[in-house]
Structure formats: structure tokens, C-alpha cells
Design a protein around this nucleic acid. Sequence first.
DNA 1: TTGAAAGCGCTAACAG
DNA 2: CTGTTAGCGCTTTCAA
Lengths: 350, 350
Amino acid sequence: MAMKRPTMRDVADAAGVSLMTVSRVVNGEPGVLPETVARVERAIRRLGYQRNDMARQLRRKEQLTQTIGLLVDDLANPFFATLARAVEDAAMLRSCVVLIGSSNDSLRREREVMSAFLARRVDGLILVPVAGSHRFLRDQQALGLKVVCADRPADNLKTDTVLVDNRSGAREAVAHLLRQGHRRIGYLGDRDDIWTVRERYAGFTEALAAEGLLPEPALARHGLRSRAEAANAALAMMRQPAPPTALFASNDVVTMGVVDGLHGAAGAAHGNVALVGFDEFALADKLSPPVTVVAQDPAALGAACAQLLFARIGGDTSPPREVVLLTRLVVRGSGEIAPAARPAPPAAAT
Amino acid sequence: MAMKRPTMRDVADAAGVSLMTVSRVVNGEPGVLPETVARVERAIRRLGYQRNDMARQLRRKEQLTQTIGLLVDDLANPFFATLARAVEDAAMLRSCVVLIGSSNDSLRREREVMSAFLARRVDGLILVPVAGSHRFLRDQQALGLKVVCADRPADNLKTDTVLVDNRSGAREAVAHLLRQGHRRIGYLGDRDDIWTVRERYAGFTEALAAEGLLPEPALARHGLRSRAEAANAALAMMRQPAPPTALFASNDVVTMGVVDGLHGAAGAAHGNVALVGFDEFALADKLSPPVTVVAQDPAALGAACAQLLFARIGGDTSPPREVVLLTRLVVRGSGEIAPAARPAPPAAAT
DNA sequence: TTGAAAGCGCTAACAG
DNA sequence: CTGTTAGCGCTTTCAA
């Protein structure tokens, strides 16, 4: 069991030819007699020979490892899983394999995984950068590593980057709520050291500002890392003396948490308060009311990253590009709920 | 730009020591003067040196590449994404990286991706095998490749395998429907050349048989590959002259499709017919009615596979093991709907 | 059309 | 504590 794997030498001996001839057959090079080819191929099959690409790689150094690295935040998150699948499909078309890793929003883990990828001499890297400094990466870029940042820009790093216009998307969502007459709009969001989250909050405040409104501290909760945390935060926010009439949730996890929280609330679905969430999620259209969302396209994001990366690997040396994908407001019902009828405020001056 | 990457030779020259000393420092071996270590480390940092693991691997051949391959059906499917994340976490604990691929239920693609993994000399492989013959794999096993099959067994291949008890899960689900008084239960399922799907259908028929019922062809639809297909199939099934009073859906995609289809139906949520689906999915508890499911634990599946694989890599040579994980019936409402009251059939003899 | 020799970047096995 | 030599499995280069 587990005998040593056969090498070209073994195949050569078995076929009664020289090692070089085996090499030529294995790599489909011309100039070998068909008969010789057949003999070699038989030996290959008989021994179960598989070319050792590591050794190969070592010698042909102008060449590539046909391996790319993909480092996302969390592979279990459907957003990144879909992105990953798109990258993988693009890689496969180019006979490339993908090393994958999750940074879990930890700079240390990102560094570790990246080092492991670099040691394996990936041809390029698609990276969803966590918060923090990436000067380590800059050094590697100078040494020829191709990097594309996905979904978020990396701190002071000149690379191709594919982003989503989070700010406009959020602004549009909140403007939509304002248009329904809402004036007290709550914000529920993830950790705002994450670039996308910060951008979405900026869009939120900009939309308010456009109507002359200022964000109220009591109507904003940051740092929600799970559905359960978001559920609690939503409940707490709605139980305030002066609750918001509408909510904006900054990502899919938080949106689902809000749905959880409001369903859990005594005697009510989430139908009492308007809700728009950032990120599309499965079954958003089947809730009651169906959830209005700002949809991104993670597959398009992944495909765009792969396209840029493979262009670089192919020798493209033009200046770094930034691609910005747009979002789409998907109107479904939860965002079109008018503010609850309540005692009209005492008529003010005018 | 893109100058050649520095080698140990370069570092050695820069630090004024021999190549071997650099090797010792890079690998943290003892027996180097702290002062020398410092000089070497400075040179390493200055040049941006990164060890070339491919070359390393070549020489220390008793050792491992610290790379495993993971080949799932579809990475974009949350079930497999969660499994993948669990594998990745386990790998990271052992300083191992993960090559990932999706077979898309195609034997050809599975073969291609596996070849690419093998050429990179992965230490082991976690595989969700597609239908078809895997004798190619058996040859590789004989050469020392460690393989663990996940979620499905591979045709006549002796490997560690981690499965879910799909048949019992399905039987339990259908028995649950029978207990509510249903006698006409429809089956909607994916392609039944997939082992898990076949097992679930077997569980379905077994549960019926236990009550003396036979599956009716008009009440079973196979080969549903997407939510849309499942939606149409569900609608068609319910529009028959004698529709079922309950449905069993063989996976998450089909279950969601059924929900889509019944929602789309004129004037009705899916509340008119009982429904139990195989697979947990996000927000199943938030639909109306909430969807009763047979839940699996993909993270546990991935973790179990990783544990078996790393044991093998670590030298475990005991006979192949088969681990079977259990499912859990999550009662939420859609499965507890009684058969619609309808004119009692004419009383038969007795 | 085929083969022999050299060497990729690294580590194992010995010297000093 | 540090250096030297040989060679992993392959491709390149040159010669037959």
C-alpha cells in the first residue's frame, strides 16, 4: 500500500525509452513516433503516473502555477459563496485551480492564509480585504504578485478593484423610505470598520441630509454581528418611547435578524414598521410582507474580479482599474408601508 | 517591476552567510546564533523573501504538501458552502490550505478537477462524488492518495465516508404526514441518479408501504433541477383532478420552488396543502405557514470528513469507516396541516 | 526522432 | 554553530 508514486523515470524504464521522451509525450509535444507515444501511454496508464506539477513548476520558471488564491470574508456566507463559485468557473475555463480561504474579518488570519498562498506561488490573488494595513501586500505586488481587491478597497494599495456602489444603493433605499413619508428612520448595521458597512451608513445619512434631517443616535445601532444580535437590537429600538416608523438594515444577516425580532414581538409580524434591507436573500419575496431590498450581484462581482486578474496574469500592465457595479432596488412591499397613522403633531407655525 | 523573486541564495548573499544558514532560520531550526538569525531575518524582510514551498516539497519527499482538495457539487449552494467552511477551519488549524472545486454533477468535470488537484500533490481529498464510476480514484488510492467521501458514497470504492441517514429522515417526514391523516402525498424531487435523492425517495415509499400504500405515478415528479422547475411541477401536481393533500420535497431548492409555486397559485399561500421539505433553509421559520423540514448539519458533515481525512494523513491505517449522521425533524406548521375537509367518500364495506 | 547533461530552489546528510 | 555536497522530478538546451 501507499508505494511511492511513479516518476517519469519509472515510466521511461517501463516503456524502454528515455525520460525525455516521456516528458514529450506527457506534455503532448510533437515529434515523437506514434508508436513510441502509444508505448509510453500504456506505461503511464499501467503505473497510474501523474505528472508532478511542483517539480515541473520549478524548472520552467517563466511559467505559471495555474493556481490562484481567493480570500473572502466568510465562505459560508451565501454572498461570498456565490462570488467564489463565479471565480472558480472563470478559473476552470483557463485550466486554473483555486485555493480558498476565509479571513473571518481578522487581519491576522488574512495574513496567515495569504502567506500560505504565496508560499505555494499562486499566480494571482483575489482578496476581500479586511480592515487594516496591507503594506505587506504592497511588497508582494512589487515582486510581481497580481492582486485584485473584491467588494472592498484595500488601505492605500494600488490594485485593480471591483466594488459595488454601496453608498448610492443605501441612499436610494433611504430616499425611497423618505418618499413614503417616513421621517424617523432607524439604522441597524454590522461593524462599521468594514468598508461596505461604513459606505452604507454614509448613504443613509446623506439621504437624510438631503431632506434636512440629522441622524439621531437613538435610531442607529452599529456592530451587529449575527442574526440574533440584530433581532435584539431591532426589538430594543422599536420599544423605545419614540420608535422609528421605518428601518434600514445594512446587510442580509441584519435584515433577517430584524425580521426575526419583529416576528418575535408580541402580536405582530414585521408589518408594523417599514423595512428596506441591503443585500438580496433567498425567500425575501415570500415573507409577509415581502422584503424590499437593495440587491447586489455577487456572481458578477466574482466574474469581474476574475476577468481583471486573468488579464493581469496574461501580461496586462495598464494602470490599475476600479470597476464599480451598481445595485438595484427591488420593491416588494416592506419598504412601501406608510408611517403608522398617529395623532397629528400639534400644528406648528405656518 | 516584477523582478524575479528572491531565493535563499539571494538572502544568503545579502546576509553574508551560507544558504544552509538561511534555510535553518527560515524553518526556525535551533542552533543558529541569535545574532546570525537577526542578520538573516533583516535580509529576508529587505528582499521580501518568501519560501518556495514547491521546491521545498520536492526535496523532503516523505513530507506533505499541506494542501488538501475539496470537491463539492456546487459551492454556491449554501449546504456545500457551509460544509466547505467547516473543512477550511479544520484545515487551517493544521496549517493546511484547501483547493476547492465544483463538479456540477458532471463526471467529466469531477475528473478534470481531481486531476488538477492530484498534479499539485494534495495530501488528501474530500469528495462529494457524482454518479458514475470512480475506478480512476481507486488507482490513485492504491498510490497512497487519501480520500474521504462526503454526503454520498462513491461507486464500489472503499473509503472513509460520511453520510447522512437520508432514508430515515425522509421516512420520518412522510410518516409525520401520514400521522396527520394524509393518504395522498405527493413527491417532488431532484434527479434521482443522485444517491441522496434516491435514498430520500426510498424513504418516501417505505413510509407509504408501512401504511399499506403504494406510490402513485401521478403523485411523483423527479428530475427537478431548479426552483423554477419545482414551482411549475408543484402547480401542475396540485391542478390535477385528484391532487395530493400533502407534499414531500426532496431538497431545499425544490422546497423553495414548491413555496414559490403555491404562492403563485391563484388566491392562496401554500397553506392549503401540507408540506415537509428535506434540508433546512434560512427563513423557513418565517414563511406562512412556517415550513416543517428535515434538517441536516452540513458543518458537522464537513468537520467529520476533515477529522477522518487528517487522521489518515496522520498515518491512521485502520479499515475504512462509515459515519452516518442523523437528521432532525423540525416541526413548524406546514407539515401539521390536516387533509382538507372534503365530501366523505361513500362508506365502503365494513 | 531521441537522448544526455545541467540545473530550478530547496533540504538531508554529512563534514568542519 | 556553520558550511558543503548531492539530489528531489522535472524541463531546457544541446548533441546525436
